[in-house]
Design a protein around this nucleic acid. Structure first.
Lengths: 195, 195
DNA sequence: ATAAAATCATACTCAATAGTATGATTAATA
DNA sequence: TATTAATCATACTATTGAGTATGATTTTAT
């Protein structure tokens, strides 16, 4: 009664992986259960043995991605040098938020989110909210900012100013150099306004 | 040969209006041609006489909205008092961008935009790009900003910091008071950093 | 080895929906 | 008034895709 557990887990993971990939490329509506099954190397029946419906599978996929997405950029804020800390934070933040995986998740949330509020909430709770809280604490400590939540908004949303164009497919995702330049510039100006 | 022209135009408009409303509430996929026809008080046949396919109708609807959407907040920048100008601009900008119509348009662009780049481009050309250009000119004139495009990003994206939550249905659209407070605060801080 | 569970292959049901066909009605022009 | 074009009402086609059914085959456990 162990082999089967392992194998079951393995199959579940395979299905989930295929689902994530398919949802990402085709969207929720566009992704077909047949395609997901095929991509997982499994019968549709088997998919339905593990996940009772497309919606449940979708949420599981989103949840899996969320769980997998650590926010390593938060740890950068531990650096002693404030500018260095912010710089590395900004860069990591951008890198994460401009990845195809993340963008696809946002697209899904925007298009299907209003119909599935619990999913959206759970997603945001470990993402933006955590980041904003941590960053606000940082600003309060280092700068003694009176209204750190607002300063966070300014910083985060300026960093994300490149995102909408990419989201709608108007501009290509920024290159590492572009991200670096943007992060550097944003932090530099931000530091100036905070002093 | 006049009456008929007028009537034809009338019918076209009715269909377009119904389409816009239906697309807005149901999304592109969710909106059915039957529903649109019914909502326009017209047969599906007639819809297809005017628009050869759902996709064409969709683009026509988007185009109609775009054409109809003036950006009145741009004119606010003509005011003599700089703070007043920015304040009224910010308020108008927020009001427009938080309207259900606008949000619905953004949702559509995000979910279907990557598959229809021309549509997206035409939409952005008269929206964001125009706004950003005008605002950049304003900042250069009034403040002598060296890099007005970047300052524009900071201002615009800070103003729009409320948008994502609304887009994904996580938070309710802000009330007029909330918009006013946010605009006021943003402009106040922006002015301070620019001086 | 054998019973039991999982998976496979395939075909099916069922509902929704884009788009078409048709014959009847109504309105516009000449 | 007679002709012609537009619209209506209704039904149909064809496709797609979620979810189900079934009997064969493989895998696991005892």
């Amino acid at each position: 009664m162990k082999k089967i557990e392992r194998k079951k887990e393995q199959k579940r993971t395979a299905i989930l992986t295929a689902a994530r990939e398919t949802f990402r490329t085709d969207g929720y509506i566009g992704a077909g259960m047949d395609k997901i099954a095929k991509s997982a190397g499994v019968t549709k029946q088997t998919v339905y043995r593990y996940f009772p419906s497309k919606e449940v599978l979708f949420r599981a996929a989103l949840e899996a991605q969320r769980r997998e997405t650590r926010n390593p950029f938060l740890d950068e804020l531990d650096r002693k040098d404030t500018t260095e800390a912010l710089l590395h934070f900004a860069l990591g933040f951008l890198k994460t938020h401009m990845s195809e995986d993340h963008l696809a998740g946002i697209r899904l949330l925007v298009s299907e989110g209003p119909d599935a509020p619990e999913m959206t909430r759970s997603y945001f709770a470990v993402g933006p909210e955590k980041t904003e809280a941590r960053l606000a604490g940082f600003l309060r400590e280092r700068f003694g900012t009176r209204d750190p939540e607002y300063a966070v908004k300014v910083l985060i949303n300026t960093l994300l100013s490149m995102r909408m164009g990419v989201l709608v497919g108007l501009t290509a995702p920024p290159s590492p150099e572009e991200m670096h330049d943007h992060a550097e510039k944003t932090v530099r100006i931000f530091m100036r306004t905070m002093s």
